Simulated assay, not measured.
Amino acid sequence: MGWFEFSLAYVVFFLSHSLPVRPPLRPWFQARLGVSGFTLTYSALSLAVLAWLTVAAGRAPHVTLWDWAPWQVHVPLTVMGPVCLILALSIGRPNPLSFGGARNDRFDPARPGIVRWSRHPLLLALALWATAHVVPNGDLAHAILFGTFAAFALLGGRLIDRRKRREMGPEWQNLRMVIAGAPFLSWRASGETVARLGVGIVLYATLLWAHPVLFGVSPLP
C-alpha cells in the first residue's frame, strides 16, 4: 500500500487523538464508559494507532535522506533510558500545569518532583523519543513521522500553557513561581519515587526485548 497506508495511518492517528477529546464527544464517551474507562480506552486506541503508524512508515517507499552509520544506533539506546524514567516519574502523578495529571488536588508545589524540571514531562519524553529516533532512521517516511512528533511535543507545551493560564487565571503564575523556588533535586526520595524509578528501568529493559516483536527491528547494535 506504500504511501497510501502511511498517509491513511497518519490521518487516523491525528483524528483518533483530536476528536474523542473534543466536546460534545468527550462528555458523551465519559457518560457511557466512565472517566477511567474513557482514559483507558483512549490510551489503548492511541497506542494501537501509533503502532500501526510506525509499521506503516516502515512499509512506505524508502527515500534516503542521509546514510546510516553504526554510531546512530547508540543515540536512541542512550536517550530512551531517561525517557523511560521520565514516563515512570510522570504517569499518574499530580500535575495541574499539564495534561494527564492524576489527583491534582494533592499536588504540593514545594515538592513538585519532576514538574520542577519540566511543566510537561510527558511531552518532554515524547520530544526526546522522537528526536532520538530520527537519527538512525534517515529515510523520508520516518523523518516525517518522528519529526512531526517532535514538533507536536514542542508546540503542545505552548498550547497547554495558554489553555491552563486561561483556565487557572493568576493561580497559574503563582504556582509556577512556587515551583521555581523548589530544589531541583531531593536526596530524600520517597518509597514511591524509588519504586517508580525501578518501573522505569524495567520499562527500558522490556522495550529492548519487545522492540523486534512490535516493530520488526532490533534496537541493539
Rank of each mutant, 00 (worst) to 15 (best):
V217H: 10
M1A: 14
P112G: 07
L214Q: 02
R176E: 15
G2H: 03
A180Q: 11
P183I: 05
L47M: 10
L89W: 04
L214N: 02
H74Y: 12
V11A: 15
L47E: 03
Y10V: 09
P20S: 08
P76M: 01
G92E: 04
E167H: 02
L19P: 09
P219Y: 07
R176L: 15
W117M: 05
A195D: 08
F6P: 03
P76I: 00
K164Y: 01
G92K: 00
V11L: 15
L126H: 01
E192Y: 10
S186P: 03
A102G: 05
S36D: 12
G138E: 09
I86V: 14
G169N: 03
S16L: 09
V11I: 15
T148I: 06
Y42D: 03
L208I: 07
W3A: 11
M168V: 04
E192K: 09
P183A: 05
A56R: 09
R59Q: 15
V35G: 06
L8N: 10
N95Q: 03
L122F: 04
L123Q: 05
G138M: 05
G101K: 08
F6R: 08
L140K: 04
A31F: 08
P212T: 03
N104T: 07
C84I: 01
V21F: 02
G169T: 07
M168A: 13
G191Y: 07
R196F: 01
L126S: 08
S90E: 01
A132P: 03
S90W: 02
A127M: 08
A44H: 02
A56H: 04
V49M: 06
N137H: 11
L203W: 04
F184R: 11
E167P: 01
V202I: 14
R196K: 08
P61M: 13
V49Y: 00
A195L: 14
A57Q: 02
L85I: 13
Q30E: 15
L40S: 09
V73Y: 08
D105S: 11
A130T: 05
Y10E: 07
E167N: 05
F152L: 15
P70T: 03
D139M: 12
A151I: 14
R119P: 02
P109I: 10
A48V: 07
G81I: 14
L15D: 01
L89H: 08
P112N: 10
D139H: 14
V73S: 12
G81C: 04
F149K: 05
L175T: 11
V12T: 12
L197C: 15
R111L: 11
M177A: 15
W68S: 13
I91N: 07
T39C: 04
I114V: 15
H133D: 09
R59G: 15
A88V: 00
H74D: 04
A125R: 00
L155M: 04
A150Y: 00
P76V: 00
V79A: 13
